[in-house]
């Protein structure tokens, strides 16, 4: 958490290999990603990172199914296997009945759940969520947070989330506070350090 301009999104981008630091290095789960070539970094991202964006960023001309299938196109899975994976991901987010719908036919909360399904379909090592509830009403936001909670609890996913929402932060196991690019506080399960 942190005020606007504190570097939350930049940190997320660095951890996800979307951006490179002007100095220093970034090591994620033992991989020093700042030393990787662009090609290697792209492959690493595809394997290890699932992104969830504030604005959902679904491809408007693709159905929910096709949006979720995107990361799987990079794998060697057959069409039938891809279908199975996509259906599983959409089941997890509770949208199997909307798989043929286009993003414009979905509510904001549903779009975000499709975005989460896309993020988890290739079974990445961790999820990076950039204000995933920032564009949602309270009820939809709670649904999304519940879903993320289940992914962490039931499926063991590591989730890093940037948020301004104190209710979202309450659900986190560890809360980091940034200010002007500096880590100023770490709270673990309700305990400040």
């Amino acid at each position: 958490m942190g005020p606007s301009g504190s570097g939350k999104t930049t940190l997320l981008n660095l951890l996800g290999g979307l951006d490179v630091p002007s100095e220093g290095s970034v090591t994620v789960a033992g991989d020093e990603i700042t030393r990787m070539s662009a090609r290697k970094l792209t492959a690493w991202r595809a394997r290890h990172v699932g992104f969830v964006f504030q604005m959902y960023n679904l491809i408007p001309v693709l159905t929910a199914f096709q949006n979720v299938e995107l990361p799987l196109l990079l794998t060697g899975l057959s069409k039938a296997e891809r279908r199975r994976h996509v259906e599983t991901a959409l089941t997890v987010v509770g949208l199997t009945d909307r798989m043929r719908h286009y993003p414009r036919q979905l509510s904001g909360g549903q779009e975000q759940r499709v975005g989460i399904a896309r993020a988890i379909v290739a079974d990445p090592t961790f999820l990076l969520c950039d204000e995933p509830t920032g564009d949602l009403d309270r009820r939809s936001a709670d649904e999304v947070l519940d879903l993320l909670g289940r992914l962490a609890g039931e499926y063991g996913k590591t989730i890093l989330m940037v948020t301004h929402d104190p209710l979202a932060a309450e659900r986190a196991q560890v809360v980091l506070h940034l200010e002007k690019g500096v880590l100023v506080d770490t709270v673990t399960a309700g305990r400040a350090r």
Binding site: T42, F51, N57, I59, P60, L74, R118, A122
Partner: peptide
């Protein structure tokens, strides 16, 4: 632009 960026973010190469 944004869609192409998303494709790259999810792992599609340049």
């Amino acid at each position: 632009t944004r869609e192409l960026a998303v494709l790259k973010a999810v792992g599609f190469s340049d």
